[in-house]
């Protein structure tokens, strides 16, 4: 006892010290928070919005693992494990739609992704300011047009009996083609209209900004060394754009599975499902139109998880290869 008492005393005092230190810290945090009270006050509606409209639906994702019934609601419906996923993976749509998603993205990466890069490089070579501005003004315009209107124009232009394209084909002695009902044309039409025509000009802006940020001394030095325009483009402009290209490529890969389902819905029809139907258009048909919520949610969750993995992988790969990443 004798021996213990001083020790316990020490313990006690250190505990007291700890407590008062904690109290001091708490006090400090309180003053800081109180200092910024208006800022926190502003954040309340903002965070509430995110909780209600972005995070609450994530809670609802559990129906992907449930036998959802409208009457029982999200929380009360019974759990069924991976049954909904199995149903989705076994359905005839899974492989077909996964392949379609992949193919649309693949051709998009080959044709739609480089298009604005090439446009920016071409615009960069133009010395006449008026001409450059005019081309930019015209090519940005389609970006501001809604996908519904673009789909409407495409549908009308390609209409089988009196669309302008078929009228021209007939004038030249060809056979009229019902483009929108033929699976082999879908990807070309979709990527051509909704990706290239709509966004080539607008997406070039960011690359032009990247080009504008390149140090002019580099070009001077290259000219001294006798590099022509082509060589300057290849050895200075393109490497200068690379960080921007990589970031946009990662973003592009991150939305790999998201493909523009909103615009695909406007252009596809049962006759072209075999090349046009992607995972999200299936979610829309099965879930929102067919009322099969749980399978739709399962397919949607599959989509979101794979997308997340793709962004992380793309980011890591890009960091390794070019030292550029999103985080």
């Amino acid at each position: 006892m004798q021996l213990n008492s001083p020790l316990s005393e020490v313990k006690e005092t250190s505990a007291q010290a700890n407590r008062s230190e904690f109290a001091l810290k708490l006090q400090a945090v309180k003053t800081i928070v109180w200092r910024d009270k208006y800022l926190y006050f502003m954040l309340i509606p903002f965070i509430l919005w995110y909780l209600i409209f972005a995070y609450k639906p994530m809670y609802g994702l559990q129906i992907a693992f449930k036998d959802y019934s409208l009457f029982k609601g999200i929380t009360e419906s019974p759990w069924v494990g991976f049954e909904n996923f199995e149903r989705f993976f076994r359905s005839e749509y899974f492989i077909r739609n996964l392949v379609n998603t992949f193919m649309i993205n693949f051709w998009g990466l080959i044709f739609a992704f480089p298009a604005p890069i090439i446009l920016a490089l071409l615009l960069n070579e133009v010395k006449n300011v008026m001409f450059k501005k005019t081309v930019q003004t015209i090519t940005y315009l389609p970006h501001f047009i809604s996908v519904v209107i673009i789909a409407g124009i495409v549908t009308n232009f390609l209409a089988p009996t009196n669309g302008i394209v078929n009228i021209i084909i007939e004038k030249f002695g060809g056979e009229k083609i019902n483009f929108l009902a033929m699976p082999e044309f879908f990807r070309t039409i979709y990527i051509g209209s909704m990706q290239i025509w709509k966004d080539v000009g607008y997406s070039a802006i960011i690359y032009l900004a990247a080009i504008a940020g390149i140090n002019p001394a580099l070009y001077e030095a290259a000219k001294m060394d006798g590099a022509n325009r082509w060589k300057q483009m290849w050895h200075i402009t393109l490497p200068g754009m690379l960080p921007t290209i990589m970031i946009l490529l990662i973003l592009n890969l991150g939305s790999f599975l998201e493909v523009g389902y909103e615009s695909i819905i406007l252009l596809y029809q049962p006759a072209t499902y075999e090349t046009a139907d992607v995972i999200n258009t299936y979610v829309y048909r099965a879930g929102l139109q067919g009322g099969n919520y749980e399978v739709g949610a399962a397919a949607g969750l599959f989509n979101s998880v794979v997308s997340l993995i793709l962004v992380v992988l793309a980011n890591r790969l890009s960091k390794k290869m070019t030292n550029v990443g999103l985080w």
């Binding site: 209600i52 995070y55 979610v283 879930g287 739709g296 949610a297 949607g300 989509n303 979101s304």
Partner: peptide, 15 residues
């Protein structure tokens, strides 16, 4: 986080 992961169409609709 919401930029990289979304709940998807159905949970959003049910919300």
């Amino acid at each position: 986080f919401t930029l990289w992961f979304g709940a998807g169409l159905i949970p959003t609709y049910l919300n």
